[in-house]
């Protein structure tokens, strides 16, 4: 879908939210939902940051680390990709305390989502690094660069462009997964919706607003990543058309 269509969809979503918010039957839900949305955004941002860090570290460890580190990273990736996000969330929330480690629910949320998406992210990073042409490694070797120098200066800047679209998808997945934290007592957008629905049974207005809010947040991420991609590929493609 083109970036113009996405921006148009975002505009429509925001206008509809605004229009509904002036209606008496919808208005009452707005303050609570917005409060929930703030928590959703906080968890999504922190989770994404953790996912990036874990994704890059796990990918580098798997590709270039010494055997024990490689092994550790593989186990991490397989476990977090092989079980579902909700299982991981519940495990950290319910089981860790039985080992005497009690984490605050917010921290559990960020950890579980960040680690989960980071595992998928490591595959993205790995694929992007492997997609850089072999000649680039060879030229860097011929210039006698060390492996960290090659990675930092030559390979990663080129892999970065290839990583942006798949990371965009992962950020959307993470944003959507934040709804799960409502099941471990956090008052995010999904929790507020569920709570208000139980109290008022006004299912249609509440869920219409909530779905539109999630849509708007996802579109912001998608559009942002498209713009980033456009900017980043500029350096590589400069003058290619000429």
């Amino acid at each position: 879908m083109g970036i113009r269509t996405l921006v148009a969809m975002l505009a429509v979503a925001l206008v509809v939210i605004g229009a509904l918010a002036t209606q008496e039957s919808y208005k009452v839900f707005m303050p609570g939902l917005l409060q929930g949305a703030v928590l959703t955004i906080e968890i999504a941002i922190l989770g994404s940051l953790l996912a990036i860090v874990m994704g890059v570290l796990a990918a580098l460890a798997r590709m270039y680390g010494p055997a024990p580190l490689r092994w550790l990273a593989t186990v991490y990736v397989e476990i977090f990709r092989g079980t579902s996000a909700l299982v991981q969330l519940f495990w950290l929330f319910f089981v860790l305390p039985q080992f005497g480690v009690t984490l605050d629910a917010f921290l559990v949320a960020v950890l579980a989502l960040g680690l989960n998406v980071g595992a998928y992210g490591s595959e993205v990073v790995r694929g992007a690094i492997q997609s850089v042409a072999r000649g680039q490694w060879e030229a860097s070797t011929a210039l006698n660069m060390s492996r960290p120098q090659m990675l930092r200066r030559i390979i990663l800047p080129q892999a970065f462009v290839a990583m942006i679209p798949p990371w965009g998808n992962l950020f959307i997945e993470l944003l959507k997964s934040t709804a799960l934290v409502s099941l471990i007592t956090l008052s995010d957008l999904a929790f507020k919706a569920q709570q208000m629905n139980q109290n008022t049974f006004k299912t249609i207005p509440i869920f219409t607003l909530v779905l539109l809010m999630y849509l708007a947040m996802s579109l912001v991420v998608t559009i942002g990543m498209r713009l980033l991609e456009r900017r980043a590929s500029l350096g590589l493609a400069r003058g290619k058309a000429a």
Binding site: G135, Q136, E138, A139, T141, A142, N144, P157, Q158, L236
Partner: peptide
């Protein structure tokens, strides 16, 4: 030792960025 050697490739392999 490799520092004494330079190489030019068939496909140039310039850094595109």
């Amino acid at each position: 030792i490799r520092a004494k050697i330079g190489m030019v490739f068939q496909s140039f392999n310039l850094f595109p960025h």
